[in-house]
Design a protein around this nucleic acid. Structure first.
Lengths: 253, 253
DNA sequence: CCCCGTGTGTGACATCCGTCACGGCGCGCG
DNA sequence: CGCGCGCCGTGACGGATGTCACACACGGGG
């Protein structure tokens, strides 16, 4: 099934990397990518001139596990989910990358293929940097190299967390951890609690913590009984502070 | 052979590791570390002069999760297990590093603390490179930087595998995968089968695949019934080729 | 207003697996 | 030789959780 660009998609039909001056330039976009922060302006310009901006809708698949790697994606806006699929169709998401984060930096440094699949959770704007251009920048500019290095580092730490969670915690605890993460990122704190508008279906939550939809439903009830989820009306959640959620998930509750 | 003391062994904080000055020079040792292969001889000399060789016994704990990172370890000989511990005492090993592999390169690049614990599975010889020296080499020599990068890369790929395994496969399949890995590394192939001397207790295998010892015992029986483990006498295994083990683990059996 | 698709709650059930309990086996040592 | 100890095999049992089945709530179109 082919997805369409959503509105505001001028950029993705511009056949050349030339920039429409009424839009924010690609350089402007890259400037807001922490991954590249600290690069000197000239290299930034250079990179920007090589980047292909793309706007894609929700559910657009960037690549699949095993595909040969063609370049680096940077998330300008939106969310990209990175996941593995099992032979029987279940999915485990490995990471969700938001604005300013790189996707697929791993295969670029070791020359292998993509280790996982990636698709958008929301309509998103991305910058695509073809492999050759990336490698040139990577080799010639030590700042780019260290940027990649720290990106790999945080990814690795994230994975250690993920492994521990899958290995040790039950579904309810995993859900608590996940909600804590969301609360930190999207929640509005106030008065000893956090309000969070959850933009995920239970099906998606289930994939993120490696379980079934029904188990998420039951785990949510369990969290309500525990008082960790104070109130829930549809997607509107009132939560205990993230720290408390995490403490409970670690068994200190 | 004498078996280790218990896992929570406190002897781990043991006294000063003995340093044997009669062993081959540190440069010789480093030369055999693939991690550093390709460095030009002068930098290798420089690094070697900063390395502290250490010989430690079995069950020696190099560091624990959360410790501040003091430097990089290189495994010259032996095996180092990297693992996380849950609050209730269970352990999940994240990796086992053998000769020529670096340990703890992650916290060195991002400045954080160790994300996991590490201890030796066998008496081992290590080279310890203090943090400051590592950072200097890392910054001044691009070859060192790329070496670190590829090390992180392979670690990351390994973790993707690990996550998938934990999320999707049952104990028998995980065990089959693990045996396939061992077969590739230590097995003697011949005549359509692989002979493997397993140097691990079932307890250790259990930790590596995130389960209990008894489950490993039962899973092994299951693999025998399936014909994937053709014969077993103590630690001597006769296995189907690694590829077949992995195929079965993926559900194609 | 009805129909339908999507997302959600929940009960029933089977399965996997962790835990406890126990016995056996090999080996080193007194 | 007997004993202790580490390791392994296996039965029993219960808890967690995946699966199936179904009801309900909601919203958008005919």
């Amino acid at each position: 099934m082919t997805r369409r660009c959503d509105r505001r998609c001028d950029a993705c039909h511009g056949g050349s990397p030339s920039i429409d001056s009424t839009m924010p330039t690609v350089v402007d976009l890259l400037r807001n990518v922490p991954f590249l922060a600290g690069l000197d302006p000239r290299t930034l310009d250079l990179l920007a001139s090589r980047c292909v901006p793309r706007a894609v809708g929700e559910g657009f698949t960037l690549f699949r596990a095993g595909d040969k790697c063609t370049g680096l994606y940077l998330v300008i806006e939106g969310k990209v989910r990175i996941y593995r699929t099992s032979t029987d169709g279940r999915e485990q998401t490995l990471a969700v990358e938001g604005a300013g984060r790189p996707v697929a930096e791993l295969p670029l440094v070791d020359g292998g293929s993509y280790p996982a699949s990636a698709s958008t959770l929301e309509p998103s704007r991305l910058a695509f940097l073809p492999r050759g251009d990336f490698e040139h920048a990577f080799r010639s500019d030590p700042d780019v190299a260290t940027a990649v290095l720290t990106a790999l580092g945080t990814r690795l730490r994230h994975f250690v967390q993920l492994v521990e969670t899958l290995a040790f915690r039950d579904v309810a605890a995993r859900l608590a951890m996940l909600l804590a993460d969301y609360a930190d990122r999207d929640g509005r704190p106030g008065d000893g609690v956090v309000r969070l508008e959850l933009q995920r279906t239970q099906e998606e939550l289930a994939s993120e913590i490696g379980t079934a939809r029904e188990s998420v439903s039951r785990a949510l009830k369990q969290l309500r009984v525990q008082g960790l989820v104070i109130d829930q009306e549809g997607a509107q959640l009132v939560l205990q502070p993230a720290a408390r959620l995490r403490a409970w998930a670690r068994g200190e509750g």
